[in-house]
């Protein structure tokens, strides 16, 4: 028992572990899952006849990508309509390439994006994929939103039922401007001079 008594550090560790456990219980058990109880307004319209297909009688909820990005589980399977800029790449979804993944960025909050799976034919309408110096095609997508997609191993995505092009993309490549390099050249020039001075003094001291 001596070893246990003498080792004060064990006591500190034990107290810390108890505090950790107590805090964990309070934080994760006592505090209800308020985070996941967020409700979006209006309540989403869902697939009316439950056939998993977009029918003319199904009215989509017009929503933004930011709202989709913070949607809770109750929104799973909702029929939604949103617009966004195509970014990144066209990624093949299945082996025959009949369906592809397209990423859409919100035009209001550039950090909000959503993956959309659509037919290859729909994706062919995209003329530009957004990247540096490129603004992607703006699309309006109607489709089913999944918080944990049953078809794609729990992915966070939208299955497009219809896709419309709202605006074509554009390209703005960088122009070469020699003046933009002048500040760097000044710093580098002075830096190299200082380095040369350092080497000179060092050699003199030897």
């Amino acid at each position: 028992m001596k070893a246990l008594k003498n080792n004060k550090i064990w006591l500190i560790a034990a107290v810390l572990v108890v505090i950790l456990a107590a805090l964990a219980v309070v934080v994760f058990v006592v505090i209800p899952q308020a985070e996941s109880n967020r409700q979006l307004d209006p309540v989403p319209a869902v697939d009316g006849d439950g056939d998993g297909e977009a029918d003319p009688e199904d009215l989509p909820v017009v929503i933004t990508i930011e709202e989709l990005n913070t949607a809770n589980a109750s929104f799973d399977g909702a029929y939604v309509e949103f617009t966004g800029e195509v970014i990144g790449d066209r990624i093949i979804e299945n082996i025959d390439g009949s369906r592809v993944w397209i990423m859409l960025n919100s035009q209001r909050d550039a950090n909000a994006s959503i993956a959309v799976v659509m037919s290859s034919a729909d994706a062919d309408m995209i003329d530009t994929f957004g990247a540096y110096g490129k603004t992607g095609t703006t699309l309006r997508v109607r489709g089913y939103f999944f918080v944990a997609c049953p078809e794609h191993a729990g992915g966070f995505d939208v299955h497009a039922a219809s896709v419309d092009v709202l605006a074509p993309g554009s390209s703005n490549p960088d122009e070469f401007d020699i003046n933009a390099f002048i500040p760097g050249a000044i710093f580098l020039g002075v830096g190299i001079l200082l380095l040369a001075l350092f080497i000179y003094i060092r050699e003199r001291l030897r």
Binding site: P173, D174, F187, L188, G191, I201
Partner: peptide
């Protein structure tokens, strides 16, 4: 051919070499 970006990194290299060389002179 991201020329604007190239100019920024050229400046970055310049600042690093300038500050680095000045600091090295503190002790030969």
């Amino acid at each position: 051919t991201e020329w604007q970006v190239a100019s920024r990194y050229f400046l970055g290299v310049g600042v690093a070499v300038f500050v680095g060389s000045a600091l090295r002179l503190l002790r030969i």
